[in-house]
Computed example of a mutant assay.
Amino acid sequence: MSYQKNNLSIIINQSIENINEIHLGRESALANCRKSIQKSSSSIRASHRNQFDEALTLANESKESLEKAKEALKKFHLNINTVFFLDTEKEFCEAMLVYSFLSESNIPTPEDLQVTVSSYLKGLAEASSELRRTSLDSIRKSNYELADKYLGIMNEVTDLLETIDFPEAVTGGLRRTTDQLRSVVERTRGDVTLSLDRKKLENQLENLKETLKNS
């Protein structure tokens, strides 16, 4: 009995050591995921300011933290498909795709970014939602053509994402994200259409004033 008790003590102590290592690995992954998300958010803000060199630098720093998180999870055989890691991947994809849309660079593939397809597609949907801000900013600057251009991109992305018809368990909730994007697109369409109609009316009134002035 004493022999069994000693064996159990050894097993428990070793188990505690293993669990502690797993805990430290998970904490390291979480810390790097938080850092990656912060860099992704900063990259998106830089893209909106047209500071594209800074945006790309921040996105690359986000990728570095994401890779560190992945290594921390793999080292202890933890599941890299855990929710917090996939959310971080999605944020990184969003940052890279916002950069690509606004800087008019080539759009990277999931393979280019070394991410899961579901993270990429959800990041694409959220990057498209970010274009609403750019479209509205263009309206405020009276650049209606640019506003309409970004609305067109948003609409095209939504149409493409809606062709993906698989269970939510496979796509990681893509349908819900696409539905949210469709709502953003429709609101943006209403804003752009209203602005274009108002601009058209202003032009007609201006032409009428000129006609009356010259008559």
Rank of each mutant, 00 (worst) to 15 (best):
G173C: 05
R175I: 01
N60D: 15
N214L: 07
F85K: 04
V157T: 13
H48W: 05
N79F: 08
E61Y: 14
T211N: 00
L30H: 12
I11E: 12
A95R: 02
R187M: 12
D165P: 00
S138K: 01
I44F: 12
T171L: 03
A127G: 09
G173P: 07
S43P: 13
S40E: 03
G173Q: 03
N207G: 07
E186Y: 11
S15R: 11
S105H: 13
D197F: 06
D87N: 14
L151Y: 11
L174N: 06
N32M: 02
T82F: 08
K74T: 05
G25Y: 03
S135Q: 02
M154V: 08
T188A: 10
S36V: 01
E71R: 13
G25A: 10
Q4C: 04
D112V: 05
K149F: 15
S65W: 05
L56M: 14
G172D: 03
K213L: 07
E156H: 10
S128K: 04
L66F: 11
G173R: 02
L102I: 04
L56A: 14
R189F: 14
S2N: 12
L121T: 02
S215E: 08
N32A: 06
S215C: 01
I10G: 00
G172R: 00
E71K: 14
N207L: 08
A29Y: 06
I139A: 05
G172M: 01
S40D: 06
S100N: 09
F76T: 11
H77F: 11
N79C: 06
L78Q: 15
L8I: 09
V98A: 11
L8V: 04
E67G: 01
S40C: 07
S215N: 12
E104P: 02
Q114N: 15
S128E: 03
L58I: 02
K122V: 01
E61D: 15
A46R: 09
E89Q: 15
I153G: 05
K141G: 02
K141Q: 14
T134P: 02
I16Q: 10
G172S: 05
A72K: 07
F101A: 07
N18C: 03
R133Y: 08
S62I: 01
I107T: 13
L201S: 04
N207W: 00
T82S: 15
Q38H: 14
A147E: 01
M1F: 11
A55D: 08
R26P: 00
R133N: 12
L212V: 02
F52T: 11
K200E: 12
M1E: 13
E89S: 15
S41W: 02
T116W: 00
E89F: 09
D191M: 09
D112I: 03
R175C: 03
S36M: 04
A169E: 13
D165I: 04
G25W: 02
K122L: 06
S9W: 05
P108R: 01
N106V: 09
V117G: 00
S36P: 13
I164G: 04
Y99V: 09
L161I: 01
L24F: 07
T211G: 00
S118H: 06
E104K: 15
E104V: 07
G123A: 03
E27Y: 06
C33H: 09
N20G: 00
L131P: 10
